[in-house]
Design a protein around this nucleic acid. Structure first.
Lengths: 185, 185
DNA sequence: ACCCACACGTGAGGC
DNA sequence: TGCCTCACGTGTGGG
């Protein structure tokens, strides 16, 4: 502890051998502390001790952030698994349609001045049919009576439709609308 | 630097006033370094300097992790917006059913020894109908002829079904299967 | 003057 | 032994 250097060492200063080594060590430690402070965006003070405290709190914050993010990501992945399955189903549906030589088709015929008869053959996309119905509903088209059959990856739909509020439906417009809807799926 | 204490201070050791204070400071710093080391799962050495280096590398790793996770989360959110829309549609569908007093319903009747007639009223879940069809298909049930109407957030389905390969269908089993499928949606 | 934080040089102990 | 790390007590400069 207390330096026991004798008082008789007169003028000649006796340097320890590890003087320079110790100096290097201190410098290295200081540089590393500055490094630690430089990558930490949250700094309260530039004291030697507060640098470490800030680093601790920053690490804890990052750990919480990682945990929270991975948690959110995990539950988002689990909820979107069915979407992935749907994608696979759609691919298989197209394959089936190709294998069986089924061609997509849209036919529209006039029944009377208010009603049209439509026949649609499309690939069996997951949710495609209900989306078709909803889209038609959005465009003011009401499905009165509908037949539907699924065969080997295809929807076969025949339906009697009319415009809401007695609005007249044009054959070509309706046909183009149906094609657009199917293409958008 | 060199202590200038006169050699005439004889036996009485003169303690600096900041001796204890400095001691507290050192202890505090050591404790904080141990804290920093304790929350760091990646430890190469327990040296004073390597503790800081490990903390730096750990912070950098955490930062990269946070960036990567938030990036993945962001692009997953953008791709799953449509799912959120579907959820909203489902909620609205249930609201509509409640507003119009439509009750979910499953009825099954026997047509002949091979065919059953079913009537189903369910909420208009996005993709629910095609999932119903696919699930029935998975359980070996074939839909021969199907009527479907959507009214105010509900599917009204009447269908003639039979078992594949001439397999007989029991009424109660089929009814329970349909209920299970609907509950799983 | 005081307080606080830091750097300094050195001895002790482990490998 | 030498090398390396740490704790110690103190001097010093800034607020």
């Amino acid at each position: 502890m207390n330096r026991k250097r004798n008082c008789d060492d007169d003028t000649r200063e006796f340097k320890s051998k590890n003087l320079e080594v110790e100096r290097r060590r201190r410098e290295k430690l200081s540089r590393r502390l500055l490094m630690l402070r430089s990558i930490n965006p949250i700094i309260t003070n530039m004291n030697r001790g507060t640098i470490i405290v800030d680093a601790i709190t920053y690490i804890e914050k990052l750990q919480d952030e990682v945990q929270s993010l991975s948690q959110q990501l995990h539950q988002m992945e689990t909820t979107s698994e069915e979407t992935a399955e749907a994608k696979i189903d759609e691919v298989e549906a197209v394959e089936n349609m190709k294998n069986w030589g089924i061609q997509a088709e849209v036919s529209v015929a006039q029944i009377d001045e208010n009603k049209l008869w439509v026949k649609i053959i499309i690939e069996n996309k997951r949710g495609g049919f209900s989306k078709l119905i909803q889209t038609l509903n959005y465009f003011g088209i009401e499905l009165i009576d509908t037949h539907l059959t699924t065969i080997k990856g295809a929807f076969l739909i025949t339906s009697c439709i009319q415009g809401k509020d007695g609005e007249r439906l044009e054959i070509n417009q309706t046909k183009n609308l149906l094609k657009d809807i199917i293409n958008d799926m």
